[in-house]
Design a protein around this nucleic acid. Structure first.
Lengths: 224, 224
DNA sequence: TCGATAATTCGACGGGGAACGAACTGTGGA
DNA sequence: TCCACAGTTCGTTCCCCGTCGAATTATCGA
């Protein structure tokens, strides 16, 4: 009776300290071992052991930079699984409903937008026919390609990579989908570059700037 | 530093014996405590403890029937999370690719069809415009409603329940989506009732009957 | 009412692994 | 060259929890 792969994988995520570190990495940014140790509230040597396991287990990727080691979620699929665990985790013990935290309004999920803003953005793209969703594989419609062109996003270049071009990702706070994949990442990138939204220091939350409010109303017809 | 909900949830799934029991329940059928104990290769008293934890943790639902206790995955979302863990688990340590097992061809995923057959079914529905996928919430197009009507499936009744009407579910073997939700469940049900497919005794695999081959070719234009 | 079987509870055992202190390696800056 | 700091390795401790044997409760059939 050998243990199925989901057992070892879940056990890897199932340790409190490791789960805290993974959660800290859910915004897609890379972090050093020390920072992750502090986040998890454990000593560095303990964190080192945990990080080695997570890396061996294929959940994290590692980049050496001088005397620092930066850890990051290995790929989007990892973030997606963590997100889906959060969906279930937040769904099960519902008692009092917490109203709305900053994270619920807008946050990053790995390298794309999530929260109410992320969900509404997908809805808008979808309803206005910018997204071709008739086939299982998402893609831009011609009007969508036009929109991205005017935004200055090179959607053609995104299709070349090995990464999934566009996919849906379930949102734990909204329980609906938001846009993920290379296209979703490009959008987040563009929003940050244009200073339409800004990251918060130590959380996944992002805040909308005044400029961003106007821009999103203009480009995506979002009432914010 | 309190443990995030994903930690306790993953720890619950992360035990080998519990993972085996959950896997055994992934076909959506209900099973007795004894049967699950045998599946996991542990004694009944140990299984009893595990099943209590899984039920308390909200992953399983329990139905008493005489002196038997039937356990079942509590809801579709649980199956979905397990499936997504399988996706990641099968994606990480890929070395030699196993060719095609019966499960890869066609199987049940909770209460709907998965595997190559499930994926192709969704593709077919989608490509022929039977599925309205422009909005984030899937629904039947008018031609789709017509098709289901002719099949004898009451799609109207499915919309009434609290359950999600139609949604996508990622397939671990095909790495593409198949159809889930009430609509997906109704299709599987109809296929089984019509003896187009048959369940295998102790696995999630289903086999296509000769009758089914013809029917699926006729109704969904699938080349089988 | 009395076995037979399903399932749980209790108690005890044992192993795995998370934690930390201390020592070590390696990189950068003065 | 030497110190400071990031990170790892090693050894030890400790506790959580999975496991099973034995006893208990519950339900069915005769």
């Amino acid at each position: 009776m050998d243990a199925p792969p989901i057992a070892s994988l879940s056990a890897l995520i199932g340790d409190p300290a490791r789960a805290l570190m993974l959660s800290a990495l859910m915004d897609g940014r890379a972090r050093t071992a020390s920072e992750l140790a502090d986040r998890a509230g454990i000593t560095r040597q303990t964190a080192s052991a945990h990080l080695a396991k997570l890396t061996d287990g294929g959940l994290l990727s590692l980049e050496r930079q001088g005397r620092h080691r930066y850890f990051q979620l290995r790929c989007e699929e990892v973030a997606s699984v963590l997100e889906s665990l959060m969906v279930l985790g937040h769904q099960l013990p519902r008692g009092g409903r917490e109203p709305h935290s900053p994270e619920r309004c807008a946050r990053t999920c790995y390298d794309h937008l999530a929260g109410r803003l992320g969900v509404e953005l997908l809805e808008s793209l979808s309803e206005r026919g910018h997204l071709e969703t008739r086939t299982a594989q998402l893609s831009l419609s011609s009007s969508g390609e036009d929109l991205f062109e005017r935004l200055g996003i090179d959607w053609r270049g995104l299709q070349c990579g090995r990464r999934n071009y566009a996919r849906l990702c379930l949102d734990w706070s909204e329980r609906r989908h938001h846009l993920a994949g290379a296209l979703g990442a490009a959008l987040l990138h563009h929003f940050l570059d244009s200073d339409w939204i800004r990251r918060q220091a130590d959380s996944r939350a992002v805040v909308l700037t005044g400029k961003g409010r106007k821009a999103l109303g203009h480009w995506f017809d979002l009432p914010l």
